[in-house]
């Protein structure tokens, strides 16, 4: 065996094991170098936000480039952010608005989607076509007339005004309809034979089975409305009702504007809820947010 090995010449273009190893390692090196460079670009604002939020003003304002603060000033910055502006109130407003929107969206979209998927009724096709058309209309389009109506009704500066344009999620209807269509008809027939009303079928049979779609939709809805600036900016002028983005904008515009320690502390507080949830429920998050991409 050994003799055959040594007398045999390697076919042309063949490579030695060491060269293979070098090729593999250098490839890995470049891949990770590129990905890490990108990661630094992505992480830079997050890291700098956290670091600045615990820096005292004199270090923030010094022209010297230093990463870690010499003096821990986190308590002061965060307590200033929480007292100088109602930052926690902004977060609470965000929770109220997001919850309100999501609950109404689900209550309206689920029965409608079930009807579109499984029931015959007059106007079904028209409704579905309208839903498809509405899918490509962004909020900025009906904003003006809705604003006029709210102003006329004297409803500006209310939680209701912040939520009402989003009560109908055509995307939710579309998504749930696709999901319900694959729900077996036999189970629905069986439930009818067992004497269940359609109302019970929707909420006790079909909805529980659509749990993954509902979870993903919820993530999508919450992320969208927690971060939405355009609509609250229009209808809210009372700062106590401001959701996180509007509050953040107000906070940055106010005289605290150049107090970067407090500013980054506020940014941290308002960004943290979603980011932390994301870290814990990564799969659901990615699913929910990219659902818009696969609709």
């Amino acid at each position: 065996m050994q003799a055959t090995l040594s007398t045999r010449t390697a076919p042309a273009g063949e490579v030695s094991p060491a060269a293979v190893m070098i090729r593999r390692m250098s490839g890995l090196f470049f891949v990770h170098a590129f990905l890490l460079a990108g990661a630094v670009f992505i992480l830079l604002p997050f890291v700098w936000m956290l670091v600045t939020s615990i820096k005292p003003p004199e270090e923030v304002f010094s022209a010297e480039l230093s990463f870690w603060p010499d003096r821990f000033y986190g308590l002061e910055n965060y307590s200033f952010a929480l007292t100088a502006a109602p930052v926690l109130r902004f977060a609470l407003n965000g929770v109220i608005v997001c919850t309100g929107i999501l609950v109404v969206q689900l209550l309206i979209a689920i029965p409608c989607a079930y009807a579109l998927a499984k029931l015959q009724f007059p106007g079904r096709h028209l409704l579905f076509v309208l839903v498809l058309l509405a899918l490509c209309i962004p909020i900025q389009v009906p904003a003006l007339p809705i604003y006029m109506a709210l102003a006329w009704l004297g409803l500006l500066n209310t939680y209701f005004s912040m939520m009402v344009p989003f009560f109908l999620s055509v995307f939710g209807i579309f998504l749930f309809r696709q999901f319900f269509r694959s729900f077996p008809d036999d189970i629905i027939h069986a439930a009818r034979l067992d004497g269940m009303s359609e109302f019970e079928i929707v909420w006790r049979i079909v909805t529980p089975s659509a749990w993954p779609a509902i979870a993903a939709f919820s993530v999508f809805s919450i992320v969208a409305h927690w971060n939405d600036l355009y609509w609250p900016l229009i209808v809210i002028s009372d700062i106590n009702l401001a959701p996180p983005p509007l509050g953040m904008m107000y906070f940055a515009d106010a005289e605290t504007g150049s107090n970067y320690g407090a500013l980054t502390a506020a940014a941290t507080v308002l960004t943290a809820p979603l980011v932390v949830t994301f870290l814990f429920a990564r799969r659901r998050f990615i699913e929910g947010i990219t659902m818009t991409g696969v609709k």
Binding site: M1, T4, L5, R8, A10, P11, E14, V15, P17
Partner: peptide, 15 residues
Amino acid sequence: VDGAPIDHLRPHERR
């Protein structure tokens, strides 16, 4: 293959 080790070769180099 024919007595020469091919363990380090990539698929297309293995004949």
